[in-house]
Design a protein around this nucleic acid. Structure first.
Lengths: 283, 283
DNA sequence: CGTTGATTTGAAAGTTATCAAGGATGGTGG
DNA sequence: CCACCATCCTTGATAACTTTCAAATCAACG
């Protein structure tokens, strides 16, 4: 049985909108992806205490918009976002599809206001971490400070990868790299690396990759014809990671698992649906 | 008389290779661009004390390479770099052309080793700021900590701009935006915003912009025909910032000055050549 | 002055975008 | 429950743009 990232945020996930008293970083399913990774118990305690509120973001609405004053960063607990920048003449560029465990908002430190928009692609739930407090606690706990720096730096590295893609790859390579990136990120979270539901439209994929939606559609169709993937609307299945790697010029090979023990725990905590590839249970 | 960023780093600039005892952040010409901007005297003092060494990098050689262990960040005192990432299959993507006042190395925090190369495009001189010390001092001086965070975040914002360019712009727009970016950065440092010497080849420009060198050359020629710029080899003159802005979709308009008082001081301190547009004085 | 690397320019080929039309999907109200 | 609407997706044909291949020119340097 596969552990597939779900198509819908279940209606049963009715977390309270604001107070986060019940939740702790210790029990969070994103534990080892988020800010607290590698920290000691008292440090996690301290960080946990800082997250006084959570925020629920409905599908299609903004977590923040460019220009909003910067007060906090937002580790994602559940849900899928797109973040994008708009050029002065109205062009849009999607710069990422953040998912649970990712941390949003670092671009706002620079001028004290956001430079990008974050839009929820599905109902989402984020922690609200006031940045000045985080800086303050970082001064008391060097490992936390270092962890924050690492995570910000990780964002720079991620962006460099996207620049590489946009600057040097052709359409098929871009699509391939995109699918492998999604696959890797789902796997990292304990979900299947070989099948998942795309949360974004073809147009959003194209925008992210510097392509038009028609090109995305055509390229996906071609990859399907070649037997590399199987795609039906949003349902994506990677048939051959290896061939995908070859055609997108990504030689890295790591173990590709469908499910980790961690994943089972995360799935439960994120209250995810059953996989679409299995008979859809009534629950 | 224009204050043009020079073609050559003068031979007279023979700073000692390592000890930086004589220099202080207080007197540095990059003062208000670098880490210390906005800090109080004692804070600057503290930061200054941390920069125990400087490093001279000869044209064509590396400040660091991908994989090198991360120990320090490098504010640039003089010289022009390219930073680039290499894909596993050997593709190169230039991700920036750092110049004096910029700070190199933040991508290395993430995994403790560099993800990118920094290559000097001309003889250069950088400060060596051990990062663990910087973190440590940041814990004692919140304004310094905040300044560091701002500068790292600035890098993210900059990258977002490049992604926008690579994802949405056509060749002429890319070139236009590139020239305006250079212009703005030179102006920010007190140099002419309307004429400067390109420090990089057409191929490097093309790589940065996701274009082939021939396309760069053709586009520059076309812009020259249209009377928007005047270009002869590396000598670049922007004739109409306004038209450049229109064709590249960058509506921003700020004052464009050829020279600021600050610029004169900086030019002296950076030991720059006389402009190519004036008779080349013997000095 | 000849060699080497960088730049310019032309012509042809290749890739992606644009324009257009037909299907599929999901939600809504009759 | 079904028709209908708005979105999203697919596919074909054509156009636009950029790359590729090729050749000539230019500049720096010993």
């Amino acid at each position: 049985m596969k552990n597939v990232y779900p198509a819908e945020f279940p209606a049963s996930a009715q977390a309270a909108a604001t107070p986060a008293a019940s939740s702790s970083c210790v029990s969070c399913s994103m534990h080892d992806l988020c800010l607290v990774e590698g920290l000691s118990a008292p440090e996690i305690e301290k960080l946990s205490g800082m997250v006084k509120t959570r925020r629920r973001v409905r599908r299609g609405s903004y977590l923040y918009k460019a220009g909003d004053p910067f007060e906090a960063i937002y580790p994602i607990r559940a849900g899928f976002f797109k973040s994008r920048v708009l050029s002065p003449d109205g062009r849009e560029q999607i710069i990422g599809f953040p998912m649970p465990g990712d941390v949003l908002g670092f671009d706002a430190i620079s001028r004290g206001s956001f430079h990008s928009d974050a839009v929820a692609l599905e109902d989402a739930d984020v922690c609200v971490v006031p940045f000045s407090e985080l800086e303050s606690i970082g001064r008391q706990f060097p490992p936390l400070q270092q962890r924050v720096h690492r995570i910000i730096s990780r964002e720079i590295v991620r962006d460099q990868g996207l620049m590489m893609l946009l600057g040097t790859m052709r359409a098929e390579e871009r699509i391939g790299a995109f699918l492998l990136e999604l696959s890797r990120r789902f796997m990292r979270r304990g979900f299947s690396s070989s099948q998942f539901i795309l949360r974004m439209t073809r147009e959003e994929i194209g925008n992210y990759l510097g392509l038009k939606l028609e090109t995305v559609s055509r390229t996906l169709s071609r990859l399907q014809e070649q037997g590399v993937i199987s795609v039906e609307q949003r349902k994506m299945q990677i048939i051959s990671h290896e061939r995908l790697r070859v055609l997108s010029g990504v030689p890295e090979t790591r173990q590709m698992l469908d499910m980790t023990p961690e994943g089972a725990r995360r799935m439960a905590m994120m209250r995810m649906h059953e996989p679409w590839s299995e008979s859809q249970s009534s629950q």
